[in-house]
Each structure stands twice: as structure tokens, then as C-alpha cells.
């Protein structure tokens, strides 16, 4: 094998980023080149957050640029996932703009970069409002190996354990559709399985490691809750793609993870905002 054959099923990649990683340039951090790569690898849709959202405080402009970048270079292939920081003033307006002005179907949260816990009242309020709007919520649990972070910027992984009680006890979060991105380095597989039982929680495979890793993930998390995520362009896209080959999944499971599980998640967005 001198090249990786294109996956034989359509792919929805739920975990890509646009703009530039703060600490180095990445080979595909230019949107047209990233889109060309995704097209070449058979990706029919990619859900994109913005690296700018990690450190910028003017998230309104970050989200506007993200939406514009997706529209200009991705057409229907790129789906923007806006960023909201519930610690900042007037975050409710940022959420409204994402939904109503920019037509975003979901948001991507970075609680560790933004400095709040999932049990904080502001975060719970944000999750409730996003749920009421029918928006998807993605939480990026960890971006970089903590051992190789910049010495002045050591960011711990998001502690997802509060979700267990939140999802079980908060009736307003019953319909929350939550995707944990890059979770497997810091979250044990049994906890991911437990979260999938408590609510509509999904995980991607970008950081699923170990030989036959996807096979192992399926033993803890129901296969219908597993999504294809590459974490491109921070990770090489092929790393995730090859995981679907390494585990002996069979066509139906491979297709489910590659796209079938993700497709319905963006079909239920409210066309108009719900009443307050």
C-alpha cells in the first residue's frame, strides 16, 4: 500500500477546525487546501470550529469569519460550529447570533480554554438554551497532548464527569444532543459508555487509540453513538480514516460510524427560534 485508498463509504467528519492553531502553522490550515483534502478523501460534510475561538474574546467576529469561510470555500461541505463562552458578558446574544443570524446548527465549546467547569451555572444555562434552540453541542475535551503543550499554556482536559448527574437530573437537558470530541485520552471508556446511557451523548474517533481501537470503543459505547472525527488539520486526516480499516467492522458498521450516525443530527434544527 503506497497510498490510502479512499474509504468506500461517504464520510461526515464532525471534528475539523479552520483558521490557525496558535502555536504552529499546520500544513492544511488554509481553508481551500483543507477543503481540497476533504474532497479528495471522500468527505461529504465536515463540521468546522475555529482555532481562533480558543483565545479570542470577540467571539462575534470569530463566528462571523467562520461562517463566511465555510460559505466561501466549502459550500455545503463545511458546516460551521460557532463558539460561545458563557463566562463572557452577553453570551446569550452570541448564541442567538450563531443560531438566528448565521444559521449555525451547532456550537463547539472549549471549557478548558475558557475557564469554566461543566457544572457551573453559566454552562448549564448555555446547555439549556442551546437545547431549547435544537442546536447540537460539541465539547472539545482536549486538543493537544498535555506533555507537549507550550510551557506557558498548559491547558488541562475538560472534566466531563459532572455530565453524569447533569444529564440524569436536569429535565431541560433531556433532548440535548452532545458530542464529545477528542475525549478518549482523558475519559475512560466505561464513563463514555455511562454517559451514552444517560443521555444523547456521542463520541468521535479522532483520539481513539490502541490497536483495533474502534473495535474496543464499540465494546463500551453503543455503535450508534460513535462518529467519524479526524481533528484535521491538527491531526493528519488519514489517521482517523485508517482506523475504520484497522478494526474489522464490516460494511454496515463502517458506514454507520463514517456518516450514517452523524447525518440525522443535523436534520432536526429548528428553523425558527423557540419562544423564550
Amino acid at each position: 500500500m503506497t497510498e490510502v485508498p479512499v474509504t468506500d463509504v461517504p464520510v461526515i467528519d464532525v471534528n475539523v477546525y479552520l483558521s490557525q492553531w496558535p502555536f504552529r502553522r499546520l500544513p492544511l490550515d488554509d481553508t481551500p487546501r483543507l477543503v481540497a483534502k476533504l474532497r479528495e478523501r471522500g468527505v461529504t460534510q465536515a463540521w468546522a470550529g475555529s482555532f481562533e475561538a480558543l483565545l479570542h474574546e470577540d467571539l462575534g467576529s470569530v463566528n462571523t469569519r467562520l461562517a463566511e469561510e465555510c460559505r466561501t470555500h466549502g459550500g455545503e461541505r463545511l458546516l460551521p460550529m460557532g463558539s460561545v463562552n458563557p463566562v463572557l458578558p452577553d453570551w446569550e446574544e452570541q448564541l442567538r447570533r450563531c443560531h438566528e443570524d448565521l444559521g449555525m446548527q451547532g456550537i463547539r465549546l472549549h471549557p478548558n480554554f475558557h475557564g469554566y467547569g461543566l457544572q457551573s451555572p453559566a454552562c448549564i444555562e448555555l446547555l439549556e438554551q442551546a437545547t431549547a434552540r435544537g442546536m447540537l453541542v460539541q465539547i472539545a475535551v482536549q486538543l493537544e497532548d498535555p506533555r507537549t503543550q507550550h510551557p506557558l499554556m498548559q491547558v488541562p482536559a475538560v472534566d466531563v464527569s459532572p455530565l453524569t448527574s447533569l444529564l440524569a437530573e436536569n429535565p431541560q437537558l433531556q433532548e440535548l444532543r452532545l458530542i464529545l470530541l477528542n475525549s478518549q485520552r482523558s475519559v475512560r471508556l466505561p464513563l463514555l459508555g455511562e454517559l451514552a446511557q444517560k443521555g444523547k451523548v456521542f463520541v468521535d474517533i479522532a483520539t481513539q487509540e490502541g490497536v483495533g481501537g474502534v473495535e474496543k470503543l464499540i465494546q463500551s459505547v453503543p455503535v450508534e453513538r460513535i462518529l467519524f472525527g479526524s481533528f484535521s488539520p491538527f491531526f493528519y486526516f488519514e489517521a482517523a480514516e485508517l482506523k475504520l480499516r484497522e478494526s474489522p467492522l464490516g460494511g454496515a458498521l463502517r458506514r454507520a460510524i463514517a456518516s450514517d450516525n452523524a447525518a440525522p443530527l443535523v436534520a432536526r434544527i429548528h428553523s425558527t427560534p423557540p419562544p423564550n
Partner: peptide, 27 residues
Amino acid sequence: GSDIGGRSFASQLGKVYGAEIRPTDRT
């Protein structure tokens, strides 16, 4: 090299297949 079984063949081969290098370098 992969570092299996803690790592996967996939994630480590992906480094080589995904890199923007010449085919002869990849080989």
C-alpha cells in the same frame, strides 16, 4: 513505527500517508 498495542497502526501510518512529502520519501 507504531508503538502498538498502546497506539494503533492507523494513527501512526496516518502520519506517513498524510504527510506532504515525495512518494520516494514515503517509501
